[in-house]
Simulated scan of single mutants.
Amino acid sequence: MADVFACAGCGTVLTAPVSQVALPVHAHHRYGHEMLPALMEPGTYAVDPEPSGPPWRPWSEFGADEAEARGVFAPVHALSLGAPGAVVVAPGDTRHTVLIPERCDGYCMGLDGRDGPNLACSHCGQPVATRIDDCSLWQSVWLAPDAVRRSPANDSAGGTTAREASTEEWKGTPPIDPSGRWNPRWEAAVGSALAHLLAVSGGTPVTLPDGLVTDTFGRALDALIPPGPPQPPRPPAKSVALALALAGPGLAAPDPDADIALVPRHPRTGKAWQPPGAVETVPLATDVWIHLAFHRARLLLPVTGGMPDGVLRDDPLPPYPGELFRPDSGVFLHTLARLPAVRQPWLREIYDRVREHPYANPF
């Protein structure tokens, strides 16, 4: 069933009916210096299990044991002391909220939430949420977990029954946006998956299937795990190279020679699809995985016959980026810091190197 969120103080409904989905991997992803679209699709919400928002404590004030108890296994700039469980919705799904003027600071073009909740319940005036809409940030409203209450939506008020979407209804996101640049959702999704891929590789080079998988993962793997015999501090190689293959619902059985399967996260639960057998899995955002698994590029020329003289293909030409694909270093580091494998010396060395030079090759 769909849910609604209401003010914990007075019970005023603060959202339209919304259905829970997995938290997008780019939820805290910054991109460029421009206005970004909404983080969430209309009618959906997601929950961030980690503490979020101010106040913040710098890493130097955390002990390793305290950080690991929070699921962070490598140094980060700071950790939030806010409450876990913040709920994110699209700005258009909020109801009965008003801005708190003295908390409307931002970096450039809008609000960035630096002062904590900047939306109040219009009925009782209690701070209930944080609106984010500054440049480089995905537009969103984060409901404070201790200020709202969730309840099933009333069908008579427009609630809808949430049903499981079949794999045929899952939507793919193309890697190139209409402007001709690499899609920032892809940069974030590949950055997250790359962290998992390094962790399961054990430091062994990975061979990739031809096509877009190689275009998006290949340069990063070559830079972070150079091909050839492993060098200290990497561990001894398990084999000359590990093979990665796409696997998931709607595809044929995974290649029996594959050592690692690139699989989709379920769009609602966020759980990684599990292939048969003992193959290692690397989770990837569903919309990106769908495009990798099922999209087929248009042919440049007809299968039979030929194009008229002077005509190369249909107009308009498809957009192509003017630069090589770069995974998002911020998402990569955020994900890798939360994988226990980063405590291995060879992987910690990669983490520290990227953290010190986040815009160096391949980022």
Rank of each mutant, 00 (worst) to 15 (best):
A16V: 09
M1R: 12
D48L: 01
S156E: 13
D287W: 05
I260H: 01
D112M: 07
R131Y: 04
G11P: 00
V288G: 05
P58W: 10
P249C: 10
G92C: 11
F294V: 05
I350R: 03
R149G: 12
A188E: 02
G92E: 09
P340T: 12
D134K: 10
T214L: 07
G172N: 03
G218A: 06
D257M: 14
A341M: 10
A220T: 11
Y320V: 12
T207I: 15
P117S: 10
R265F: 09
D222V: 09
T44G: 06
P340L: 12
L36N: 00
D315N: 12
A16R: 04
A285Y: 01
G218N: 05
R296L: 08
A272P: 06
W346C: 03
L36F: 00
A243V: 08
P24T: 00
A147T: 04
A90Q: 05
V89E: 01
P232S: 15
D222C: 10
E50Q: 09
P175H: 04
G113M: 02
G172H: 02
T335P: 02
G322P: 11
A78G: 08
P84C: 09
P175Y: 07
F363M: 03
D146E: 12
P345Q: 06
L246E: 04
P54D: 11
R114L: 10
H357T: 12
Q274I: 15
G277F: 09
A8M: 07
H77F: 13
L242F: 08
V47N: 04
L197H: 01
M35F: 14
V98F: 13
K171A: 15
V263I: 01
A64Y: 10
F62T: 02
T160R: 07
L262R: 00
A129V: 07
G85L: 02
P145H: 00
C10V: 13
A188D: 04
Q20L: 08
P227Q: 03
A245L: 06
Y351T: 03
R30W: 13
H295V: 15
P226W: 06
T214H: 04
V72C: 14
S192W: 02
F332A: 05
S201W: 06
H77W: 06
H266Y: 08
R298C: 08
P175I: 04
W142V: 05
P316I: 05
S179M: 13
P91Q: 10
P316N: 07
D134A: 07
G277A: 04
T214K: 06
R185V: 01
P327G: 05
E356I: 10
R326M: 09
P152E: 09
A261N: 05
R268Q: 08
T12W: 01
F73C: 05
H123D: 14
